[in-house]
């Protein structure tokens, strides 16, 4: 396997595992009596498990805690490497937002007309 292919697989798996870990932690931070976290948690854990297995196989590392740490760190590093792209995208979006006019709110107009008619 070429080095570029290995890097791409590691970045893909790492980002998938890191995103799933973020999902799990965000569910923990927002837990409430109406949550049904069992199925989403199992799904996120399955993604982390498969991604760690893929990275462990690609890097010839034993499947375990060290492989999990490597997977998550590689995912975070890949995301940090593409942050400038997100920065360019957000700068353009916010520039357009800064120039636009505030749209009329049909909901507020409806409320005004209804309270005026009562």
């Amino acid at each position: 396997m070429s080095l570029e292919m290995e890097l791409a697989i590691t970045a893909f798996s790492g980002a998938a595992a890191l995103t799933s870990l973020c999902v799990l932690l965000a569910m923990l931070g927002t837990i409430n009596p109406y949550h049904r976290p069992e199925v989403p948690s199992l799904g996120a854990l399955a993604v982390i498990f498969v991604a760690t297995y893929v990275v462990a196989t690609t890097h010839d590392v034993e499947f375990g805690l060290d492989a999990l740490r490597l997977t998550l760190v590689e995912g975070a590093l890949a995301i940090i490497r593409i942050l400038p792209l997100a920065f360019v995208f957000l700068t353009v979006m916010l520039f357009r937002t800064s120039l636009r006019k505030r749209p009329e709110d049909p909901l507020l107009a409806l409320l005004e007309s209804e309270s005026g008619s009562v």
Binding site: L7, A8, I9, A15, T19, S20, A78, I82
Partner: peptide
């Protein structure tokens, strides 16, 4: 190669 992080994150969110 780091760009492949995007479909990885999208896959996790889709799951």
């Amino acid at each position: 190669p780091a760009l492949t992080a995007l479909p990885g994150a999208v896959l996790a969110l889709a799951v």
